[in-house]
Design a protein around this nucleic acid. Structure first.
Ligand SMILES: [Mn+2]
Ligand SMILES: [Mn+2]
Ligand SMILES: [Mn+2]
Ligand SMILES: [Mn+2]
Lengths: 218, 218
DNA sequence: ATTAATTTTTAGGCATACCAAAATTAATAA
DNA sequence: TTATTAATTTTGGTATGCCTAAAAATTAAT
């Protein structure tokens, strides 16, 4: 089985299992990888044989220790590259995900560790996602989603869970960048949209968008 | 047909045709790509259909204008990455070829042009090979091989045609790096090996090695 | 001009990675 | 509990990209 394909499956299983706590369904994998469910079934059987995952028919899939290590190393490569592209090469946080999807498959530890070193071994990537260290150790945090925020409270934006250019450009427009301080002014009764105050301006955030913004209480 | 495969064929055809002047044989392609000649025949038929090459059965292959442009852009990516790895990331000239073989397939013009800009739009890579500019224009030069050098003359090392770690480390050991000045002290009658003087030390160069060193008269 | 060696092509196969349609299994609602 | 819906798996196919062995064509040597 081709390495790049294996890598994409393992990385996606890792991302969908939120830190290996959940079992991943074929459906979600198929959606995320834009692949037919039938193909996912086949692939999982192979990954099971290769001992990268434990795939229980009609139930779900989780990573083995080996698979988890591999997944973490791909996630590390992806996030280090994203950080390098933003910090050293001047790309916007909305441009780097697609490029990193390709760069993450370049297999050379010395290269990634060199980039990490230049960046000062960063712990978070441009979207606020934690970067595993060379051993696969990952920063734990207890951030919440903006959709779970409470009225009148102050928060700091810590990350996003959607990496699409459209969404990130929208955030840029309203200065909702990582590190920004925001206050939850009100929450609309009828549609749960959130009125935020950021840099003295009011912004209305849809529930869908609020679900993709990660914050920390101040 | 998968892009990475197409890219590797086109790049290799370009390299073997020395600037599109020669027709390339299946044999040489098979050798260079470490692929069975039968597979090369098939691939060339496809590349011909795709109008990337003109493949004349049992005679040879050359690039079309389209194929040539594509090949040049891959060569550019390869050589820019090699230069970046050496100049900005501290890799040795003997370590970068393999990594660039992977990086050259990352398709993002902005990225390559950004790297080129940081490097000051270099015209030669760490092995002395010319780097095509963004439009595919390439520096012409009339360097010769060390194996063609004449006795008593002074030369400057301008490049190498073998990128293997073993060969480059051997050159490093004798200070035969790009830019070094050398004098041809003598040429052995019986085996054509060359006695060079470099940094006041004598080095004996085999004909095979001399064929891989590119020089310019001083 | 033959023969011999080399190169190229053909033929028949194989593994990977995908898909669509049908059949099965599991989950949900009535 | 049964019917309906949704998710999963099976089945049968396709395209890519590679291989070996054998045949054919080309090139080199006698
Ligand atoms: Mn990303
Ligand atoms: Mn990211
Ligand atoms: Mn190279
Ligand atoms: Mn080079």
């Amino acid at each position: 089985m081709r390495t790049e394909t294996v890598e994409n499956y393992l990385k996606t299983i890792y991302n969908l299992s939120s830190d290996n706590t959940l079992v991943v369904s074929n459906q979600k994998l198929a959606d995320k990888l834009s692949i037919n469910p039938a193909s996912v079934t086949e692939a999982l059987r192979k990954l099971h044989e290769l001992k990268y995952v434990i795939y229980e028919k009609s139930y779900g899939t989780r990573l083995t220790t080996t698979g988890s290590k591999l997944a973490l190393s791909i996630v590390r490569r992806h996030r280090i590259w994203e950080t390098y592209l933003v910090k050293e090469l001047g790309f916007g946080w909305d441009e780097v995900h697609e490029i990193a999807e390709e760069l993450e498959h370049v297999k050379n530890d010395k290269l990634i560790n060199k980039l990490a070193e230049i960046l000062g071994n960063p712990v978070y990537d441009p979207h606020g996602d934690p970067i595993p260290d060379a051993k696969g150790k990952i920063q734990k945090s207890n951030f919440i989603k903006l959709s779970e925020a409470r009225i009148k409270n102050n928060y700091k934006i810590m990350g996003v869970t959607d990496h699409s250019t459209a969404f990130l450009k929208y955030l840029d427009k309203h200065h909702l960048v990582i590190g920004a301080s925001v206050n939850v002014k009100s929450i609309e009764e009828f549609d749960n949209s959130i009125v935020l105050v950021c840099q003295k301006k009011e912004v209305n955030i849809s529930p869908k968008a609020a679900d993709c913004i990660i914050i920390e209480g101040l």
